[in-house]
C-alpha cells in the first residue's frame, strides 16, 4: 500500500509501506541504469525498464509498486545521472534506505522526489522481503518483522519540503520559486 498522488508524476508521501530489496555497498549509477539505455530516451517510464539492470535486468518486473530498496554504504556513486533515481522511482520503488549515499545521487533523489533515508545502522537489520514502514514526515523507518524502529538522519527543512511536494519541479509549479529561496 502506498499513498500516491496520481495527479502528477511526483509522489506526495507521508506513510510508505513496501517489501525490502536488499543490496550491498557501492551500488553505483552504472548499475542502477547503464549509460547506453539512459542516453537514448527522455521518457522516465522507458528509463524504469532498466532499473538495477547492472545486477538484474529483470528487476523492474520482479518488484511491486511501493517496494523499498535497502543498501549499504555509498549508494548511487559515480555518474551524475538523474536518470538513476528516476529509473528506480518510475519502476515503482517508493524509497531507498542506505547506510550512506553518494553526494550527487543524494541531491538528485530529493530533486526528483524520491525519498531516501540515511540510517548508518541499517546493515544486517533488514532481510530481503521484510515489510518496512516509513514515515516520511519524520524520517522514521519500522521493520514490521522485527518490530525495530530506526531514525534516519534529518535533512534541511527546505529539502524536506521539496520532497514532500514531490520534488523540485512540483515544488516550483506550486510556489513559482525554488525551495532554497524563501520569498
Amino acid at each position: 500500500m502506498i499513498m500516491r498522488d496520481q495527479s502528477h508524476h511526483g509522489i506526495n508521501p507521508v506513510n510508505l509501506k513496501g517489501k525490502a530489496w536488499v543490496f550491498g555497498d557501492d551500488i553505483n549509477t552504472d548499475i542502477i541504469i547503464p549509460f547506453r539505455f539512459k542516453s537514448r530516451t527522455n521518457d522516465p517510464y522507458e528509463m524504469a525498464k532498466y532499473a538495477m539492470y547492472g545486477l538484474d535486468p529483470d528487476f523492474h518486473k520482479k518488484i511491486s509498486k511501493g517496494d523499498i530498496v535497502v543498501a549499504g554504504r555509498n549508494f548511487g556513486g559515480g555518474s551524475s545521472r538523474e536518470q538513476a533515481p528516476v529509473a528506480l522511482k518510475y519502476a515503482g520503488i517508493s524509497a531507498i534506505i542506505a547506510e550512506s549515499f553518494a553526494r550527487i545521487f543524494y541531491r538528485n533523489a530529493f530533486t526528483i522526489g524520491l525519498p531516501i533515508l540515511e540510517i548508518s545502522e541499517i546493515k544486517g537489520k533488514v532481510n530481503p522481503q521484510d515489510d518496512l514502514k516509513i514515515d516520511i514526515t519524520n524520517f522514521v523507518v519500522e521493520n514490521v518483522r522485527t518490530n525495530e524502529t530506526f531514525y534516519a538522519r534529518q535533512v534541511p527543512e527546505f529539502m524536506r519540503q521539496m520532497l514532500l511536494e514531490g520534488g523540485l519541479v512540483e515544488y516550483y509549479k506550486k510556489y513559482k520559486h525554488f525551495p532554497w529561496i524563501q520569498s
Binding site: N108, L168, F178
Partner: peptide, 17 residues
C-alpha cells in the same frame, strides 16, 4: 557535478544552494 533538474534551476536563476 550536480543533476539535470538542478542545472535547470541554475539556468533559471544563476544560483544554487
Amino acid at each position: 557535478g550536480i543533476g539535470s533538474t538542478e542545472i535547470a534551476a541554475v539556468w533559471t536563476t544563476g544560483q544554487l544552494w
